[in-house]
């Protein structure tokens, strides 16, 4: 059984960094949606998901990430991902996710970019 871990690692103004580890399937995806909803309600409109410890994602997990994207877009916020494995980065590329979400190779690069007004 593959476990799933989710932790809000950093809250700084509008930014929230959420670390996600393990297997993003339906259960993990629902936990991500619930956490994202809470953070948006608390006023964090920049959500950065750090996928460094994410081993695999399935299409049900992806569909739930799209729900998060929709919520963030409605809130006129920014959704970002960092440190995806090559296979997850390829999955995002196949979907065309980079048109709607920002994707960074590392958390440092993401924090640098997100703290700079665009």
């Amino acid at each position: 059984m593959e476990t799933f871990e989710l932790e809000v690692a950093l809250l700084r103004g509008p930014l929230a960094v959420i670390e996600v580890g393990g297997y993003i399937n339906n259960e993990a995806g629902e936990a991500i949606v619930a956490t994202a909803r809470r953070l948006l309600e608390e006023g964090h409109r920049q959500l950065l998901f750090d996928l460094k410890a994410t081993r695999i994602i399935n299409s049900i997990g992806i569909s739930l990430l799209l729900e998060v994207l929709e919520m963030v877009m409605e809130a006129k916020g920014t959704l970002a991902f960092c440190s995806p494995s090559p296979s997850i980065a390829k999955t995002f590329q196949i979907m065309g996710l980079a048109q709607y979400a920002r994707i960074f190779e590392s958390r440092a690069a993401a924090l640098d970019a997100l703290s700079t007004p665009s």
Binding site: N58, S59, I60, I62, S63, L64, L66, E67, S87, K90, T91, I94, M95
Partner: peptide, 12 residues
């Protein structure tokens, strides 16, 4: 928001 499975299989 589902329906990506087959698309991913074909690309991977």
């Amino acid at each position: 928001k589902r329906g990506w499975g087959l698309e991913l299989m074909r690309h991977l």
